[in-house]
C-alpha cells in the first residue's frame, strides 16, 4: 500500500493562510458576533464577507456597492483607489491565491465525480460575470442611490460568500435566534443560490469564479497591467496550446482576463516558456533568458 503523503501545493497553503488571516477573529465564531475594530476600514483583496464572525477586514465588493450606493453624497474615491491598487499589483492572482471562496470551490471540485469540461459554451458563459458586475454592482446601487435607498444588488440577491460566511455561520450560533427569526423569502432565495453554486462547483471547476464573480471580472479588466502573475516568454513559446488545454479556466491564452495565475501550466510547458513573475523577478519557472526578456503574451 502506498503510504506516501502528498505534499500540499504552496498555492494551497497560501490560500489556506490567507483565508485564516482574513478570518483571524476566532472569538467571533464562539460568540456569534462580528469583529468591530478599526482595521475593518481596510479591505482584503479577496471575496470575504465582512459579516463573517471571523472577518477582521472589509469585503472589497460589498464596500464598492455601498460606496456606489452613497455616491450621490460622496465620490467613491477610497474603495476605487483600493481596488485599483489591488488590480495593478496582483490582478487575478487574488483569485488564484488570496480568495477564501476560491479555495472552497477548488476543494469541492476535488470530490470524485464526473466533471464538466470547458468548452466554447463555458467560454461564452464566462462573460456573464461582466454583466453581473455592470448590473448588480454598479447599475442597481447607482439607480437606488439617487432615490436615497442604499441597495447593494450583488450582496442582497446573489453573493453566496455572504450567505455561507455571514448568514450560515451567524445563524448557526445559539445566541443569534433573532437573526434566524428574521430570515424570510430573501434568505431562502440566497440559500438556494448558495446550494446551487456549491453543487455546481463539484462538477464544474470554479463555477462561481468563471461565471458569476464580479470581483474577478473587475480584476480581470486590469489583467494586462498587473505586476504579479504568470508571464509567457514569446521567444520560447511554440504555440503548442498545452497550457490552455491543462487550464481549468476559460482562457484563450495564458495571462488573459480569465487566467487566475495558479501556475498549473508552468510545469506543463514543453519549452519552459511560462514563469510566475513579479515584474522582472522570476518567482517560479525556468525561462530561458538568453533568448530575450520575458514578455506577456497578450
Amino acid at each position: 500500500m502506498d503510504r506516501t503523503v502528498k505534499k500540499p501545493l504552496t498555492r494551497r497553503l497560501i490560500q489556506l493562510y490567507s483565508a485564516l488571516l482574513y478570518n483571524a477573529h476566532l472569538k467571533g465564531f464562539t460568540e456569534g458576533k462580528i469583529y468591530t475594530g478599526n482595521i475593518k476600514s481596510v479591505c482584503v483583496p479577496g471575496l470575504n464577507c465582512y459579516s463573517c464572525p471571523g472577518a477582521i477586514a472589509a469585503c472589497p465588493l460589498g464596500s464598492l456597492q455601498n460606496a456606489v450606493s452613497a455616491s450621490a453624497d460622496r465620490p467613491a474615491f477610497y474603495i476605487v483607489g483600493i481596488l485599483l491598487l489591488f488590480a495593478l499589483l496582483l490582478g487575478r492572482v487574488v483569485c488564484g491565491f488570496l480568495c477564501p471562496f476560491g479555495l472552497i470551490q477548488e476543494l469541492l471540485h476535488k470530490i470524485p465525480t464526473k466533471k464538466l469540461k470547458k468548452s466554447k459554451l463555458t467560454r461564452k458563459l464566462s462573460y456573464t460575470k461582466y454583466a453581473i458586475l455592470a448590473v448588480f454592482v454598479f447599475l442597481i446601487p447607482a439607480y437606488f442611490a439617487f432615490r436615497r435607498l442604499p441597495l447593494p444588488g450583488f450582496c442582497k440577491y446573489i453573493c453566496p460568500a455572504g450567505t455561507l460566511e455571514g448568514a450560515v455561520l451567524l445563524m448557526l450560533h445559539p445566541n443569534n435566534g433573532d437573526l434566524r427569526a428574521m430570515a424570510g423569502s430573501l434568505f431562502v432565495w440566497k440559500f438556494a443560490v448558495l446550494i446551487a453554486m456549491l453543487v455546481a462547483c463539484v462538477f464544474i471547476f470554479r463555477a462561481f469564479c468563471r461565471f458569476v464573480c464580479p470581483l474577478g471580472a473587475l480584476y480581470g479588466l486590469m489583467s494586462r497591467l498587473a505586476l504579479i502573475g504568470v508571464k509567457v516568454d514569446k521567444g520560447n513559446c511554440t504555440d503548442c496550446g498545452a497550457c490552455v488545454r491543462v487550464c481549468g479556466m476559460d482562457i484563450a491564452s495564458v495571462g488573459d482576463h480569465e487566467c487566475v495565475h495558479c501556475g498549473d501550466c508552468i510545469d506543463i510547458c514543453p519549452t519552459k516558456a511560462i514563469t510566475f513573475s513579479a515584474g522582472k523577478i522570476v518567482l517560479r519557472g525556468s525561462a530561458i533568458k538568453e533568448r530575450g526578456h520575458l514578455n506577456e503574451k497578450q
Binding site: 453573493c159 455571514g166 448568514a167 445563524m171 430570515a183 430573501l186 432565495w189
Partner: peptide, 9 residues
C-alpha cells in the same frame, strides 16, 4: 451585521 449580505434585509 450586513443585513443584505446575510439575506434578511
Amino acid at each position: 451585521i450586513c443585513s443584505e449580505c446575510i439575506g434578511i434585509g
